[in-house]
Nucleic acid binder design. Structure first.
Lengths: 245, 245
DNA sequence: CGTCGTCTTTGATGTATATCAATGGTCAAA
DNA sequence: TTTGACCATTGATATACATCAAAGACGACG
């Protein structure tokens, strides 16, 4: 049985598993897609698969950064806290996405599951040895880091300069586009996180998120279909709103 | 004579130069610090040094990302624009810092000098060949990207969740710390950019930047010494304000 | 199939920051 | 030394969003 992060409200950690890289359904979404059979075997050796319930902390900000993770199913959020509890979510991660990059020896943010999730957990130490042997893996990681940097800059524009409506429209569109990039349906789009998480991602309060969604609904650009499903009735108009037209 | 970016208000581009890596005063601040003599020679071969006047565009968002740059002196800002002209500055770069990382083939932001500045300009194509030969260079670049990612996340917290006073205090402290990291004096600290740039970096207006500075002055934590110089009278109190205590 | 707890929506009010407007500094050129 | 352009400061007012408060929804569980 895997120990990973802290256990809140007595959640049970579901078992680890070392078998299943071969059947991995999302391999072509991950950095595993660039591995040869030989590399794959070596990577598998420093890997454990863990299954976590919803709302479970994977690691805390300032923990020793001993592991890297790949989300294989479910949704994960990353966040930082201010002293008084104000929270900024810096990203949501879906199947195929990567977390754990750290500049120092410690994590710079807390990672927590939004839904039940499975993750591949890699030993940083052992993975780094592989990187030394196969530099193209590191090259791939640099590509991932560069993309994340671009996304971070877009998020700065959103947080610093967009209105609540523009933020909300951008968010819905981004979620839709990312679902399609994973091969899922982008319309209607599923928002697996609650209003508090959306607010902490967009720099808004719960109430403003809710009100802004009703505004978009009243404008006829979206329909709220319940349990986190949103229909994009006029995707182009939503795009215009996102960019401030 | 070097052509680089666009020329605004008829600025003259000051001459390029291929000689001076040996005398480079800031080499140990840059990624050149990890180079052997042989590597250095090869890197120098794909390098041009350019000197630019203040307020000169180095490259535009969506330009072909043919070059990487290292700031050797002066200050550079990176920004993105919304359709109606709203601007978010995503970073200021000082001597020793790196720009031009791009996920796609095009730059994701505009880069512009704040002061007169010198930059080492590298051909991306040729530099990438070197990276293939010497993977430790790529490893170093990955480290840089990881640090920038951490910084970007801190900036998201600032933009999404901090008050004007906390933003301003954080900014002054960051500028002070970065000056010290470059071996310059961190107190008094020099802010080479104008109020508009500070506002566009912090998600505030010019007026709010100005008012917030006067507030901090009236609290006695800083003194405004004219022409962009600020004395940190009570650095610890400023730190508390930055974190929301 | 009701009840409880949690999440979401909606309403009333407050406030931090933006906007609009004017004045004051500073520096370079005349 | 004066002029003019630009930038920073300060004041008055507006507003987008936050905060405080209550009422609905929804799902889990007995």
């Amino acid at each position: 049985m895997e120990q990973l992060g802290t256990h809140r409200h007595g959640d049970r950690i579901l078992g680890g598993d070392r078998q299943s890289c071969g059947e991995c359904e999302i391999r072509d979404l991950t950095f595993c897609s660039v591995l040869t059979a030989e590399e794959m075997a070596r990577v598998r050796a420093c890997r454990t698969e863990v299954k976590l319930p919803a709302h479970h902390t994977i690691f805390h900000e300032a923990d020793e950064a001993d592991h890297l993770f790949n989300v294989t199913s479910g949704v994960v959020k990353l966040y930082k806290l201010l002293a008084d509890g104000r929270r900024q979510i810096t990203g949501f991660l879906f199947a195929g996405e990567f977390l754990g990059l750290a500049a120092n020896r410690t994590y710079a943010y807390t990672a927590e599951t939004v839904t039940e999730a499975k993750l591949c957990r890699f030993s940083r130490r052992r993975l780094e040895k592989l990187f030394d042997e196969w530099p193209h893996l590191e090259k791939h990681l640099l590509g991932i880091a560069a993309s994340e940097l671009i996304a971070a800059q877009d998020q700065m524009v959103l947080l610093g300069r967009k209105t609540a409506q523009e933020k909300m429209a951008s968010f819905i569109l981004m979620m839709s586009e990312r679902a399609e990039a994973r091969g899922q349906d982008g319309n209607p789009v599923t928002l697996p996180m609650n209003r508090a998480d959306i607010g902490d991602y967009l720099g808004l309060t719960i109430e403003t998120v809710s009100r802004t969604l009703t505004q978009l609904k009243n404008k006829g650009v979206i329909s709220l279909m319940g349990s986190g499903h949103i229909l994009l009735s006029k995707p182009d108009d939503l795009g215009d709103l996102a960019e401030g037209f």
